[in-house]
Simulated scan of single mutants.
Amino acid sequence: MRKVSFAEFGGPDVLRLIDAEEPHAGPGQVRVAVRAAGVNPVDWRIREGQVLGAHPTELPSGVGLDAAGVVDEVGAGVEGVEIGDHVFGEGVGTYAEFAVLSAWARIPEGLTFEEAAGYPSVTETALRILREAGVRPGQTLLVSGAAGGVGSAVLQIARERGITVIGTAGAANQDYLRGLGALATTYGDGWTERVRALGRVDAALDLAGSGVIRELVELTGDPGKVISIADLDAPRHGVRFSGVAGSVPDALAEAADLIVRGRLHIPVEKVYRLTEAAAAHADSQAGHARGRRVIVP
């Protein structure tokens, strides 16, 4: 089979499309014929060797955590899924023609493989950081870098829970944020004043890693009310860096329920081929996404 791999840590140019042996499902796992794989910032952080504590990586390594596809092997002890089922979930080395998943759920009716591949990590992350931020119905949450995949999920889940959201993004994404129910404003000079004009901030999330931790602490008045998933220096300011996944099966089940009820939709901004994995990573690192990027075999 074909898969994307890297033999050294570095920039997008270390990615290679290689021929490799097919993986097989072990106990508690399923294998899928991959139809689409989600592109996440953690993918290029792993490729650069930034997060070895949370994601130990033995070289050479495959790439990708999220996938949607058709089950073609079922491991020992697995129940409730059959060969031929269409599922989405998390595993390893998902930028490939076949991948093994350790957590999965059936793809909700009406969702394409490309759309489904964009949900696993971002919804788990969104649910986790909302829980860690401790924000409650009736309170206001500030989301810095709100137009990407995680931000799109956070805005919609927060709205479903009765939480007011102020989202920052580029000028081109202001209407997009408003369409997801957020109070929107741009980043750049004077952004903290613009946020204050929109209301009190009870908690804040840093999703972009754009060097705004200090300002988020000032806006909330408490570093304990700020969570970052993108700034590795956040702990220096007393802010929690959230990088360890919680229960992925529970997150997938909740995401599927929200999707079926029409409460969660994350658009696919761009689809790449396996041969374009380096370009997908470069685009992801550049930011400014609206929704998700996915790779198809």
Rank of each mutant, 00 (worst) to 15 (best):
11 G>C: 06
140 T>E: 01
148 G>Q: 08
58 E>S: 14
123 T>S: 08
74 V>G: 04
2 R>P: 11
253 A>I: 10
290 R>W: 03
176 Y>D: 06
26 G>C: 09
192 T>D: 03
216 L>M: 07
264 L>S: 06
127 L>C: 04
158 A>W: 04
65 L>D: 00
83 I>K: 13
161 R>F: 08
284 S>Q: 11
1 M>H: 05
258 L>E: 06
234 A>Y: 07
130 L>S: 06
138 G>A: 06
68 A>E: 01
285 Q>V: 06
37 A>I: 02
99 A>L: 13
269 E>N: 10
132 E>F: 14
199 G>I: 12
111 L>K: 11
58 E>M: 08
243 G>H: 07
66 D>T: 05
276 E>N: 05
171 A>W: 07
30 V>G: 02
222 D>R: 10
99 A>M: 13
19 D>A: 13
290 R>V: 15
297 P>K: 07
132 E>I: 15
109 E>C: 04
161 R>K: 14
155 L>I: 10
54 A>W: 02
141 L>A: 08
16 R>N: 05
98 F>L: 09
289 A>E: 12
86 H>Q: 11
37 A>D: 08
47 R>N: 05
137 P>V: 02
272 Y>L: 03
199 G>S: 02
210 S>D: 08
164 T>N: 02
243 G>D: 09
179 G>N: 10
99 A>H: 12
17 L>D: 02
115 E>Y: 06
149 G>K: 03
121 S>G: 00
218 E>W: 08
224 G>W: 13
150 V>L: 12
207 L>R: 04
218 E>F: 10
133 A>I: 06
175 D>K: 14
160 E>W: 14
162 G>A: 03
105 A>Q: 09
44 W>D: 13
10 G>Y: 01
177 L>A: 03
228 S>W: 07
236 R>C: 00
8 E>Q: 15
121 S>F: 04
90 E>I: 15
193 E>S: 12
43 D>E: 06
182 A>D: 06
96 A>T: 12
259 I>F: 06
286 A>H: 12
206 D>P: 15
203 A>Q: 08
133 A>K: 09
76 A>S: 14
87 V>K: 02
191 W>V: 09
14 V>L: 05
166 I>G: 00
131 R>P: 09
72 D>I: 14
105 A>H: 07
183 L>N: 00
198 L>E: 00
252 L>D: 10
80 G>E: 01
101 L>K: 02
71 V>P: 09
190 G>D: 04
284 S>M: 11
41 P>N: 01
60 P>K: 12
223 P>C: 10
